[in-house]
Design a protein around this nucleic acid. Sequence first.
DNA 1: GCCGTTTTCGGCCCGACTGTTTTCAGTCG
Length: 574
Amino acid sequence: MNNAQIAETFDLIGDLLEFTGANPFRVRAYRNAARTVRDLSEPVAELISGDGRKLTDIPGIGEDLAQKITVLAQGGELPLLAELRAAVPESVLALLRIPGLGPKKAAALHKELGINSLDDLRRACQQHRVRELKGFGEKTEQAILAGLDFASQAQVRMLWAEADLYAQSIMQHLRRARSIEQMEAAGSYRRGRDTVGDLDILVVSAKPAEVMDALADFERGAAVLARGETKMSIRLNCGLQVDLRVVPAESFGAALQYFTGSKEHNVELRSRAKARGLKINEYGVFRDDQYIAGRTEEEVYAALGLPWFPPELREARHEFEWADAGALPQLVSVDDIQGDLHMHTSESDGSATIEEMVAAAQRRGLKYLAITDHSKRVTMANGLNAARLRRQWAHIDKLNATLRGFTVLKGVEVDILERGGLDLEDDVLAEADWVVASLHYGQNQPRDQITRRIVDALRHPAVCAIGHPTGRLINRRKPYEVDLDAVFKAAKEHGKCLELNANPERLDLDDVACAAAKAHGIPIVISTDAHSEHGLDAMKFGVDQARRAGLTRHDVANTRTFAQFQKLLAARRS
DNA sequence: GCCGTTTTCGGCCCGACTGTTTTCAGTCG
């Protein structure tokens, strides 16, 4: 098993254990281990065989879990998992996806009524058998029925870029409530995750009811899920849940910190507070019920002897160890980006001309760009053959002669062919300033084959970077089977870049893979893959993921000036 | 199941809201 499969197995064990009413901290241990293994920058197999770092050196992995990881990595099976599977049919885990149903209630339904699936559950509700159970009632039964309808819809997290549109329009709507003094969207939205599960909006107001009325009024047909004194939840027609919290001004920083999360980051923070004899909640930091801090996030972290963390880092991955070492990275920002190295024009499947893309890039403060239209294999996109490409490059030469303080690189997005090899002759590719190699066809090939195609492309002297290295389309297409670790090693060996594709539907390398690439010392290029002038605005989405991966300006190749970049390219040629 | 210059055993983050209760358990974030 590889890291991802081991992580999945531990998550499953966690779910099954929870269902059987196991010690919640034991459940957490498995879930933490799943996260840890998933985020590792190297295959666990290397930690088992190597004489360097051991599995038990990793925080959260003790003797028992290390042994289980070893068994799984070597293709063995876990007796614990077999036992759990015998006790709990895996199909009942679907019950946990129903809003309002947790492990206790789901287990009761399974045990008392023999419910094994969502279909069983619907029948039991319709026959009013659920309301007879202790701890259940008529309202619970109706809530489950409503939840079943919701759970049967495709349950997907929203793209960050789409959630951003909702966040902005909701906050604009809420500002009608005159009593709002401060407002901010928190949660995974603020942490810049590639997808967002729900929106958390935090407000300071002396009149909470006025703000809640405004939220209720945002959209006709939205369902109010809960409404109390300080907290309200609604579900929009699109399925997005919006949680509103109203807090006093002296608690705004504490609440913002708390509702930004992540949950794991907060758990660590609270345990550190406790070690200092402090208590921290969404209202502030307290010593013996005496308020110490809470107006701003900086104040809250400072009270615990910690620096303010950029929200993108708050995943309890490495931020605390960095802070303890006084080495929190200075994260890359959109302003650091000097050039964009992947985009298309109307010559292939883009909508704008080279001149239009150049003007759009200049308006956005960029100093250079690479035109990387598709190669001929991508017939659907009107990909270019050698003759058309050379004509385009001649045109770029002329254009460059007219530009001041801006450079257009002669590039191409060359296809990595199904049988291996590249879609253009070596002599053509050698004339390019910048070559992105990407895989668009044969995405269902087995892992070995895909990996070999990409590794071979990295070995080709003309190739500068691999475009969208996993090929995922969020919520639409899984990443192809590829051994990223082998790709990292090849990129490192041949001195090549890997792309972080900023298209909000792609965003691959994702944050975890990007951090692993950084650990291998591979320069990352963040590129928009723009197919229009507007597409250049996607840079922000890519930068957010790079920030989540802990990348600084030095880790990102296209933060360099063109002169520095030329040196990089020259080094590549020599 | 993990972890430890306050502990090798006994902890493990904290509060709002709901529904089913009659003082609180379960769920959620």
